[in-house]
Design a protein around this nucleic acid. Structure first.
Length: 228
DNA sequence: GCGTGATCATGG
DNA sequence: CCATGATCACGC
């Protein structure tokens, strides 16, 4: 980690959705290097040791406030910030992490009240071109997308969530893999495969298992892009 | 250790 | 080729 990033500047949080949107429009077409300079950060040459850099850069530039709380980044506005890496062909390159999977929840869950939905209900997408042929400082930010799931999106997301959380709550952790779910999938979310946390066994008892997260498939974020 | 930000690296 | 499973850094 370079010294410049430790001392980087934070932007004041936007007070309204319109203000956030205006800021997002202002940075469209900027390079990561230009943006980083405005908040005294330095763009890494590769992301092997700084995978979250671009997300943290955009949090600073746009004035996100939630830190590591399980809340939308712009808490007062209820808006989640997500960067979206695109291949040079304009398609999403990676899945999008959304939230941690609550592996110990035994209570009946409500879709509209779950952490996952609270983040999915309103997202500011910031696409950028992930081009291995260029140094990351020259990668360009694209046009922002302020998105909420359509009724059809929500129906699929909710069905995926119900299927996946059904397995979690029934203690069927060993049946969960990233192939399940049409738009949403569950994948490991930890420093490494040895990390353990508590989950539910098939008799409702506590078992040790790996932490997992909910991710949106690239095929779904591609639909969001195509529609915008 | 957990949740935030994600991308890496390899097997199918 | 690309999705799955694995991995990296930070704040607290």
């Amino acid at each position: 980690m370079c010294q410049g990033n430790k001392n980087s500047v934070k932007t004041f949080p936007p007070e309204t959705e319109a203000e956030l949107w205006a800021r997002a429009l202002l940075i469209a077409q900027c390079t990561l290097g230009d943006l980083a300079a405005t908040v005294s950060m330095t763009v890494p040459k590769d992301f092997r040791r700084e995978k979250g850099f671009i997300g943290q850069l955009l949090e600073r530039v746009l004035g996100a406030t939630a830190g590591n709380l399980s809340k939308p980044d712009f808490t007062q506005l209820g808006i989640e910030l997500k960067t979206l890496p695109l291949n040079p062909n304009g398609q999403p390159k990676e899945s999008t992490y959304v939230s941690i999977v609550p592996l110990m929840s035994r209570d009946r869950l409500s879709w509209r009240n779950c952490d996952l939905y609270q983040k999915l209900r309103h997202i500011l997408w910031i696409p950028y071109c992930f081009d291995k042929a260029l140094d990351p400082e020259h990668w360009r930010i694209g046009s922002p997308i302020l998105w909420s799931p359509s009724a059809e999106d929500e129906a699929v997301l909710r069905a995926d969530w119900e299927e996946l959380m059904g397995l979690v709550q029934m203690g069927q952790l060993d049946q969960i893999n990233a192939r399940l779910g049409e738009y949403l999938q569950i994948r490991p979310k930890a420093m490494n495969a040895k990390v353990r946390t508590e989950g539910l066994g098939n008799n409702g008892e506590c078992v040790r298992t790996s932490p997992r997260g909910f991710y949106l498939r690239p095929s779904f974020t591609a639909k969001i892009l195509a529609r915008s």
